[in-house]
Design a protein around this nucleic acid. Structure first.
Length: 414
RNA sequence: GCGGGAGUAGUUCAACGGUCAGAACGACGGGUUGUGGUCCCGUAGAAGAGGGUUCGAUUCCCUUCUCUCGCCCCA
């Protein structure tokens, strides 16, 4: 058997056309996030296994973590999420950082999953976190950043919905039911699944867990239209800022155990892709796990796979050009003589790919077209003698003869 | 971990229990070594693997592998 040319299961090769999309998406993300004053950081791809055992959630640690023992006998894991790493970093400099701290990163994360649409074993995830600000204004800012990102991609308010809840408020309601800790945690998982279940199935599953009378109490909470106080204030702030597609949804809980108060999820409203796209919330307790004073924190993670599905589903991805501006076609044996012109065009800021194969012109042209360069410059003996070169605009099929400086101008205009 | 679907040229697909498994697109080359995306001609290129049924299997059956969609969970 020859070696396989396929990428590892659930992981992607980024051929140039895919890489262009990725670069475009990351550029929009960086632009928006940085406009709110966030600074980029990164952390190692590998972390100590215990970092995740602590607080991430059992399923991820036991079944989805890529982990191994290194040559020094340390148990390590490939990061399945960024939040523990960034919490570790903040805790490490707890006393010397200037709060509020606005940090972001776009790490590549790995989870051992069964791949399917919108979920691979590897993805890039924009992580945006605001540390050191306990007030609702921080939650507001984080959700506003998420909203601004989608708008920056051209999304309209009818394309997605922001669902908000407060874990604290929910825990309060659950507490009044006087349940055991086990009952609470299985109930939270059940509530998380509510939107995917038939409502009668949900009701009976709840009744089975906690008994009929309490189940009725719970369902009146879940059907409540009146948001708890912090969610109410958040909704007001968002409405004030032109975010009108945010709603209170008492069934939003998020999978990770570390969320402590406000949680939110952004839903794609495309009927073909109706799913939770990404989300986040407040996790005030995580930094404190490292033995330092806790730092109140709110943040979100946005995966590139679901984001791309969203953009494609709503037709929001633009046509993307190659990095190459110009393909240079040499006529005859002028490779050496043409170097000074080529160099001066590069110095002027153009990205030039020179065809030095000496193939027939039509073949060179065909390849230039296929490679996607928008312009072609022909350089032959005659052009070199005149100091004027043929510039061809492949889109318009126009050919003009210009000196090097005019060529620079013409291409930059286009 | 559980369930559905699919594996035929590089890609998307087709036909067929029995001559040489076809096509389109793509690749490569040619159509007078100074001009592409239209046109003409040519060349190369395929049954995931293993087993069974059969005179004969790409076709039917089983196993396995891979991909894919869904469930679980999540981004």
């Amino acid at each position: 058997m020859p070696l396989s040319t396929k990428a590892y299961k659930g992981a992607r090769d980024f051929y140039p056309e895919d890489m262009r999309v990725r670069k475009y998406m990351f550029a929009v993300l960086r632009r928006v996030v940085e406009s709110f004053g966030y600074q980029e950081y990164d952390a190692p791809f590998l972390e100590a296994f215990e970092l995740y055992a602590a607080k991430t959630g059992d399923e991820i640690v036991n079944e989805q973590l890529y982990s191994f023992t290194d040559k020094g006998g340390r148990k390590v894991a490939i990061r399945p999420e960024m939040t523990p790493s960034v919490s570790r970093m903040v805790a490490g400099r707890r006393q010397e950082l200037a709060y509020p701290l606005r940090w972001y990163s776009i790490p590549n994360l790995w989870r051992y999953e069964r791949p399917q649409r919108g979920r691979l074993r590897e993805h890039y995830q924009l992580n945006v976190d605001l540390f050191g600000e306990a007030g609702i204004s921080a939650d507001f800012e984080i959700i506003l950043v998420a909203d601004k990102i989608l708008k920056a991609f051209g999304a309209g308010p009818d394309m997605y919905e922001i669902k908000l809840n407060s874990r604290k408020a929910m825990d309060g309601s659950l507490k009044s039911l006087e349940l055991s800790e086990d009952q609470v945690s299985s109930l939270v998982k059940l509530i998380d699944k509510k939107s995917k279940m038939e409502s009668s199935d949900f009701t009976s599953a709840v009744a089975e867990q906690i008994g009929q009378p309490k189940a009725e109490q719970l369902s009146s909470y879940l059907e409540g239209k009146m948001p708890p106080e912090p969610v109410e204030r958040l909704l007001n702030l968002l409405n004030n800022s032109g975010v009108n597609n945010a709603v209170y949804d008492p069934s939003v809980v998020r999978g990770f155990d570390y969320y402590s108060d406000i949680v939110f999820e952004v839903y794609d409203k495309n009927p073909d892709n109706n799913r939770s796209m990404f989300g986040g919330g407040r996790y005030d307790g995580l930094v404190g796990l490292f033995g330092v004073e806790p730092v109140p924190t709110v943040g979100f993670g946005m995966g590139d796979v679901t984001l791309r599905n969203f953009l494609e589903g709503h037709n929001l991805l633009p046509e993307l050009k190659t990095e190459t501006d110009v393909a240079v076609i040499l006529i005859g044996d002028v490779f050496i003589k043409a170097q000074p012109v080529i160099e001066s065009l590069r110095a002027g800021g153009l990205n030039l790919a020179v065809d030095s194969t000496g193939r027939k012109l039509d073949v060179q042209l065909k390849h230039a077209v296929k490679a996607g360069a928008p312009f072609v410059i022909f350089i032959g003996e005659q052009e070199l003698a005149e100091g004027q070169y043929k510039l061809r605009d492949l889109a318009k099929s126009e050919e003009t003869k210009l000196p090097a400086d005019k060529i620079l101008e013409a291409i930059k205009r286009a």
